[in-house]
Design a protein around this nucleic acid. Structure first.
Length: 456
RNA sequence: GUGGUUGUAGCUCAGCUGGUUAGAGCGCCUGAUUGUGGUUCAGGAGGUCGCCGGUUCGAACCCGGUCUUCCACCCCA
């Protein structure tokens, strides 16, 4: 071995066992998506840069992987920009495609592009990898899968109610109990900013507020101050730090705080509708919680904002997020098309299930029986039985070489194949097979028919 | 993108203030055992010490760069 090969930072190879577990999550999510009436679409892994750039805020642009143009791309680059080593400027000359950063923006593009073929409200789901040029950490990769479900073409709040139920259904089906579905509303956040007279600094305000659980109340206030929010304003929003109790306790508190804000009141109304509906419908294993500090993905969300936290004992960021965006398709030229959707972070859900030991043992599909190879004639004899087993839906295989028994048995052992068939001259003569249970060590002499029956 | 951290055999890790041929456990291969694995015993293979450069008589160890890992920030699934 000269130089060990490697894979890029933040990417991973998946072993057979890992793939089995990942597929278990995929299939569970897919199953629930379909039950809720979503239909799958797929979009290209890369888009035209202009489709993605500017949709995720400044920070987002930095994290988008750009694809270098083909051919002699430097020839066309602006020589002045090149001379100045202005990376930002040069990028537009040498790269016109980029890897997708999430599934929502490509979906919006898809809706606009195919608007005449779609039936609205259009419910789609999409399970594909996305890429971010982020610095990796635990549960943070540069290539990871998102599982999205979105509805466009309906402003009905029943959609939000459905999505909370969908979250609950998926995590319940995965056996992951005790998740918290945090909900907030952009209108409430706008209301806060309005009430304190800092509407122009809405984003700075909410970004700071979002860090409450991380840096504490004083930290939040300090950051707000640094961003230029006045002390009077900070004083005014003090009550939001004191919101506690049940969902309705919090909405009652919000009513006082946002009494003078029309947007704010609208936001509270929406939250109350969603909560009371869900109280009647009930959730299986998840808990719905109002978290007014939740502000993620603010860039295009206009109504509800969702985020799912794993059970408390697992230290990991969110395992899902989503919200309503009233005008995402507007940037691609289609007005008045409200959308709402949620996303599941497959890779993080994997880490959580692994940490809590929640993967069912049955996820790994393995060969059920290995035929020991004793030579050419015996192999053929074995393969005839294997053919029958496979027709009956049993995974069976023949060891390809007539290697030493020890080696073949060892192979079965290591691959955790539960049964082995020994069929040599003796068995062939009697038209039998020796079936051995690798765990108990028991052996039986059986006919082909009995072999199929026993292994079913 | 900013600051820090990590890298020694397939895996988990030792390796003293720089000093001869770099070690352990597990795993792997061979044999004891030529149609019976997981146990045991005996033997064996396997490392340009992440990479590049520097300091030194001498570098796994010190210095610089680079890549990678993990962590904090930023941001986020």
């Amino acid at each position: 071995m000269a130089q060990k090969p490697s894979i890029p930072k933040g990417t991973r190879d998946f072993s057979p066992a890992e793939v089995s577990k990942r597929n278990f999550i995929f299939e569970t999510i897919r199953g629930q998506f379909q039950k809720f009436g979503f239909q799958a679409i797929e979009t290209p892994s890369f888009e035209n840069s202009e489709t993605l750039m500017g949709k995720y805020g400044e920070e987002g642009d930095r994290l988008i992987f750009k694809i270098l143009n083909s051919g002699d791309f430097l020839k066309k680059a602006d020589s002045q920009a090149l001379g100045q080593k202005d990376s930002h400027k040069i990028t537009s000359y040498i790269s016109e495609k980029a890897l997708r950063y999430d599934l929502t923006v490509p979906f919006a593009r898809y809706v606009v592009q195919h608007q005449n073929e779609l039936e609205f409200p259009f419910k789609r789901y999409q399970i594909q990898p996305v890429w971010r040029a982020d610095r990796p950490q635990k549960g943070r990769f540069r290539e990871f899968f998102q599982c999205d479900a979105d509805v466009v073409g309906s402003t009905s709040l029943w959609q939000e109610v459905e999505f909370v139920q969908l979250y609950d259904a998926v995590f319940t089906a995965l056996g992951l109990k005790g998740t918290t579905i945090k909900i907030n509303n952009r209108k409430v956040l706008s209301g806060f900013a309005e009430v304190i007279g800092e509407s122009e600094r809405l984003i700075d305000f909410t970004v700071a507020l979002d860090k409450l659980d991380k840096i504490g109340e004083d930290g939040v206030k300090k950051e707000m101050q640094e961003k230029g929010i006045s002390s009077e304003a900070i004083e005014k929003i003090q009550p939001i730090f004191n919101l506690t109790g049940s969902f309705s306790d919090k909405t009652e508190g919000l009513k006082d705080i946002l009494a003078t804000s029309e947007v704010g009141k609208k936001g509270i109304e929406e939250l109350e509708f969603i909560n009371s509906s869900l109280e009647s419908l009930g959730l299986q294993t998840a808990t719905l919680d109002l978290d007014v500090t939740l502000a993620r993905g603010l860039n295009y969300y206009t109504g509800a904002i969702f985020e799912v936290a794993a059970p408390k004992e697992v230290k990991l960021g969110s395992i899902g997020g989503g919200g309503r965006y009233d005008d995402l398709t507007g940037i691609f030229g289609l007005k008045d098309m409200s959308g709402v959707g949620i996303s599941f972070g497959l890779d993080r859900i994997y880490l959580v299930l692994e940490e809590l030991n929640l993967f069912p043992e049955t996820v790994a599909q393995n060969t059920k029986v290995l035929f020991i190879n004793f030579g050419e004639k015996e192999a053929l004899y074995g393969l005839k039985a294997i053919k029958k087993l496979r027709t009956s839906g049993i995974t069976a295989e023949l060891y390809p070489e007539d290697a030493k028994m020890k080696k073949q048995m060892n192979y079965a052992n290591r691959r955790e194949i539960p049964f082995v068939v020994l069929a040599g001259a003796e068995e062939m003569e009697q038209e039998k097979f020796t079936l051995k249970n690798m765990k108990s060590g028991e052996q039986f002499s059986v006919s082909v028919y009995e072999l199929v029956e026993k292994l079913k």
